[in-house]
């Protein structure tokens, strides 16, 4: 059973309603894309946060990652909008 720490930043944090959480994943979720699809079914805040996939970026264990990235037990996953640093 895979357990993840999930962080949200900027307007994704506002839409989801919290900055971080721990989640136990159901069977069959092995990639970031699958995680997003599952989260969207959890409550309306997640649906609002992930409704525009082109505006969502992610990191797994503090490294930028794409939708196909594998996730596994103990990982830290972060979701955020495109970066506006500098």
């Amino acid at each position: 059973m895979a357990k993840l720490r999930i962080l949200y930043f900027a307007w994704l944090r506002e839409r989801v309603g919290h900055a971080e959480e721990e989640r136990v994943l159901p069977q069959g979720i092995g990639t970031l894309g699958e995680l997003i699809a599952w989260l969207r079914t959890q409550h309306s805040g997640y649906e609002a946060a992930f409704s525009e996939p082109r505006l969502v970026r992610a990191a797994v264990n503090q490294a930028f990652a794409g939708q196909d990235a594998a996730i596994s037990d103990g990982d830290e996953v972060a979701f955020f909008p495109p970066i506006t640093g500098g």
């Binding site: 930043f9 900027a10 307007w11 990191a59 930028f64 972060a78 955020f80 909008p81 495109p82 970066i83 506006t84 640093g85 500098g86």
Partner: peptide, 28 residues
């Protein structure tokens, strides 16, 4: 830094509202 360091800017306006700065295609 503008596109690869994990920072996000939020502007606070005179009317009390706030908005997240959108990433610019030009920056990318």
């Amino acid at each position: 830094l503008k596109t690869r360091a994990p920072f996000w800017k939020q502007e606070h306006l005179a009317d009390g509202s706030s908005r997240w700065v959108a990433a610019l295609a030009q920056d990318e």
